[in-house]
Design a protein around this nucleic acid. Structure first.
Lengths: 247, 247
DNA sequence: TCATAATGTGTAAAAAGTACATATTTTGTA
DNA sequence: TACAAAATATGTACTTTTTACACATTATGA
């Protein structure tokens, strides 16, 4: 009996107290960086500001900040976007963590990249401090970015190229009503390919997520095309389960 | 001249020093948690240990630990796996960050879940402290897990179901040589569906990544099937570019 | 030797994807 | 007012992939 109790006690002593355990952990600064894509003039664009760090003087930077005590990562990303641009109705998706110890010149900062796609016309920039504005993604290859932001953007862009084919993400970049030509040029710009107009049309109609608004383009100097809307609800209900096994 | 300089100086003063900036940031503990999948007896399994925290006495837990000073997340995940299981040749992929301020009873700990798939036979557990062993994924629904680990595993499993269809991840779960039946049962177990034997066969042969080893199954009580190997190199060269646009 | 239980191979119909041709509608100009 | 230009809109034939099956083959074990 006593021996048994002794064993029990011994075993309990191996169990750790969680507060002292967490106190023993190394602590690091954590930030979020927002990769915000838009589509304008048939080009994919991204939101950048001038870095306000001495070391990165003149360089462009993603919208980022350190997280606060007890702040969730998702909330931090939304806060950063709100503080920097004035937008507060944007869905941000966690993309990836970057943890190279030398990525920040001021010391160790682990960052979580967040990604979003939005319609530039419907999201006017209310704040434009630090020269906040849209840059075409293609133009970035000649620009020097702060931190590891160039690499983060490249990875995020590749992720976008993949995602846009399996999820109707692209519609977030367009106005509510859009022509099929606009939709096609969106795919062509992001995937950097050319698509056959007629087959593209057939493909999207067969998916049956486009609603005919009955309206037509205006201000075009040729025959105006019909305007469509994307039916997100219908998509959510029917979205592809998949079993194709397709490498 | 003097005015110009004054302006320059003023502007420089707005630029921040990165070290003092990082010092001003809130710091938090960061951990990694490894979600390790295996396949045995036609069942998908996962590696768990008993939690050594008083609060989670008796509950199962993922393999995790806090990261060290200047340790990259990927390295931390590999270290954890090595320390807990003795394995050091495993490819781990970053999955997702979880940052609920209450997820750890000892205080704030943000965790990064890492995921891997491996062949149980080829990765004998050299260390089995804290009752480390394989649990079938299905059996977890009746078990109580420590922290938010149940939710992490569920999310990771859904990710796996998707990934295994677009990437030949599943082959990592199998021995180097395997029968088509084994391969099919792997897909059926993970996706929780039934597939037609003949069409499954046709699909994989048409992908042309399977090498006929010339060997046959042994120890089966029926006609033995041929054993195949997966040609990862060939896959890397030819992998699908994709343009289908498939929601 | 033969029933059983797998493996291995084939084939026909349906669906999806690809490569084009042609008609239609608006703009703008002679 | 007629007509060329430039886009939209629709269609069709061909190819490839997917799906739903049937049938033959080979080892096991009673």
């Amino acid at each position: 009996m006593t021996a048994d109790n002794q064993i029990m006690t011994d075993k309990s002593q191996h169990l750790k107290d969680s507060v002292s355990l967490v106190n023993s952990y190394h602590k690091a600064a954590i930030s979020v960086d927002c990769v915000i894509f838009g589509f304008e003039d048939e080009k994919l664009k991204i939101l950048l500001i001038r870095s306000d760090l001495e070391q990165f003087k003149g360089k462009w930077s993603l919208l980022g900040d350190a997280i606060k005590e007890n702040e969730e990562l998702d909330n931090a990303a939304n806060r950063v976007l709100l503080e920097r641009t004035g937008m507060n109705d944007v869905y941000l998706e966690q993309f990836e963590a970057f943890s190279n110890p030398n990525r920040h010149p001021g010391g160790r900062v682990i960052t979580l990249a967040y990604c979003s796609l939005l319609n530039i016309q419907h999201h006017e920039l209310e704040i434009t401090d630090n020269e906040l504005h849209w840059h075409s993604v293609k133009s970035l290859k000649d620009k020097d970015l702060a931190f590891d932001h160039k690499m983060i953007i490249e990875k995020c862009f590749k992720w976008l190229q993949k995602r846009i084919q399996e999820h109707p993400l692209g519609f977030n970049l367009l106005p509510e009503r859009f022509s099929l030509r606009t939709l096609q040029s969106l795919y062509e710009a992001i995937l950097n390919i050319e698509l056959d107009r007629r087959n593209f049309r057939k493909k999207f109609f067969s998916m049956d997520y486009l609603t005919d608004t009955g309206e037509y383009e205006t201000d075009v100097k040729h025959r105006p095309g019909k305007l469509y809307a994307f039916n997100f609800e219908k998509y959510e209900k029917n979205k592809r389960k998949w079993t194709g096994i397709d490498f």
